[in-house]
Amino acid sequence: MNDVTVTVSGFAGNTPALHTGKDKDFAMFRVASTRRYVNDVGDWTDGSTLWFTVKTWRTAAVNLARSVHKGDPVVVTGRLELDEWEDADGKSRSGLVIAATSVGVDATRGKVEFSRVVHQAALPGAPDQDGGLVTARAGDTDPFDLGAPRPGSDETDQADGPGAGQRELVTA
């Protein structure tokens, strides 16, 4: 395939807008990325700011709308695509959009709290209710458990204190 894949690091220019409709849910937001460099006299200088429109679909759109807020540092990876539409005056418009395959809050710029979203069908013994999302309760089996050492076991470093590294499954 000849897809153009890009990765952009920057800041959310707006809180993502979630659009729901008859086809499928999608969310869009803008990312500002400003290059910093050392100028001729050795001082750090801001370059021009590039603005990117980012679009996500389905469950990723819902997660994005709940997780990213204006001003948050983000890292976005996705396909560069041409988005075409008609404006309110009936004129044809187009623009480049990143169809995101990954969006994350940049943990190098602050503390990030993560909560995994679990589809009901992924939970052992869960009834199927139209593929809805559910919260796994304390003590439930983690369907994503990879056998990693648990906090408090002999194999983990306790320097982070009690409860460090524990995961909680929540409803999206």
Results as ranks from 00 to 15, higher is better:
residue 1 M to K: 12
residue 2 N to W: 10
residue 4 V to P: 10
residue 5 T to L: 15
residue 7 T to F: 08
residue 7 T to N: 08
residue 9 S to T: 09
residue 11 F to Y: 13
residue 11 F to H: 11
residue 12 A to L: 09
residue 16 P to T: 03
residue 16 P to N: 03
residue 17 A to G: 01
residue 19 H to R: 07
residue 21 G to I: 03
residue 22 K to N: 06
residue 23 D to L: 04
residue 23 D to Y: 05
residue 23 D to A: 15
residue 23 D to W: 02
residue 24 K to H: 06
residue 25 D to S: 01
residue 27 A to N: 00
residue 27 A to Y: 01
residue 29 F to G: 08
residue 29 F to A: 04
residue 30 R to N: 04
residue 30 R to S: 00
residue 31 V to I: 02
residue 32 A to P: 05
residue 33 S to P: 04
residue 34 T to E: 03
residue 34 T to K: 02
residue 36 R to C: 10
residue 36 R to Q: 02
residue 37 Y to W: 12
residue 38 V to G: 03
residue 45 T to C: 12
residue 45 T to L: 00
residue 46 D to V: 12
residue 47 G to M: 11
residue 47 G to E: 04
residue 48 S to F: 06
residue 51 W to T: 00
residue 52 F to L: 15
residue 53 T to W: 13
residue 56 T to C: 06
residue 59 T to N: 13
residue 60 A to W: 01
residue 62 V to M: 00
residue 63 N to E: 14
residue 64 L to D: 00
residue 65 A to E: 07
residue 67 S to H: 05
residue 68 V to D: 02
residue 69 H to T: 07
residue 71 G to D: 11
residue 72 D to R: 13
residue 74 V to H: 11
residue 75 V to Q: 09
residue 76 V to R: 05
residue 77 T to R: 08
residue 78 G to C: 14
residue 82 L to F: 06
residue 83 D to A: 12
residue 84 E to V: 11
residue 84 E to W: 04
residue 86 E to K: 14
residue 87 D to P: 02
residue 88 A to N: 12
residue 88 A to G: 05
residue 89 D to V: 04
residue 90 G to M: 05
residue 90 G to D: 15
residue 91 K to P: 00
residue 92 S to L: 04
residue 95 G to L: 02
residue 97 V to L: 07
residue 97 V to N: 07
residue 98 I to N: 08
residue 102 S to P: 08
residue 102 S to Q: 12
residue 105 V to Q: 09
residue 106 D to S: 05
residue 108 T to Q: 12
residue 109 R to Y: 11
residue 111 K to P: 09
residue 111 K to V: 14
residue 112 V to C: 02
residue 112 V to H: 12
residue 114 F to D: 07
residue 114 F to I: 15
residue 115 S to P: 00
residue 115 S to D: 07
residue 118 V to G: 01
residue 120 Q to I: 01
residue 122 A to Q: 14
residue 123 L to R: 10
residue 123 L to V: 14
residue 123 L to Q: 13
residue 124 P to D: 13
residue 124 P to Y: 06
residue 125 G to Q: 00
residue 125 G to M: 03
residue 127 P to S: 05
residue 130 D to P: 03
residue 130 D to E: 10
residue 130 D to N: 05
residue 131 G to W: 06
residue 131 G to V: 01
residue 134 V to G: 00
residue 134 V to I: 07
residue 135 T to Q: 11
residue 136 A to Y: 10
residue 137 R to V: 07
residue 137 R to Q: 13
residue 137 R to M: 13
residue 138 A to N: 15
residue 139 G to A: 04
residue 140 D to P: 07
residue 142 D to T: 11
residue 142 D to E: 12
residue 142 D to L: 08
residue 142 D to F: 15
residue 144 F to A: 05
residue 144 F to I: 11
residue 145 D to Q: 08
residue 145 D to R: 13
residue 148 A to V: 01
residue 149 P to N: 10
residue 149 P to D: 03
residue 150 R to C: 03
residue 150 R to S: 12
residue 153 S to T: 15
residue 155 E to F: 09
residue 160 D to P: 04
residue 161 G to M: 09
residue 164 A to L: 01
residue 164 A to I: 04
residue 165 G to T: 07
residue 165 G to S: 10
residue 166 Q to A: 05
residue 167 R to T: 13
residue 167 R to S: 12
residue 167 R to C: 10
residue 168 E to Q: 11
residue 168 E to L: 09
residue 169 L to M: 13
residue 170 V to D: 14
residue 171 T to D: 07
residue 171 T to N: 02
residue 171 T to Y: 14
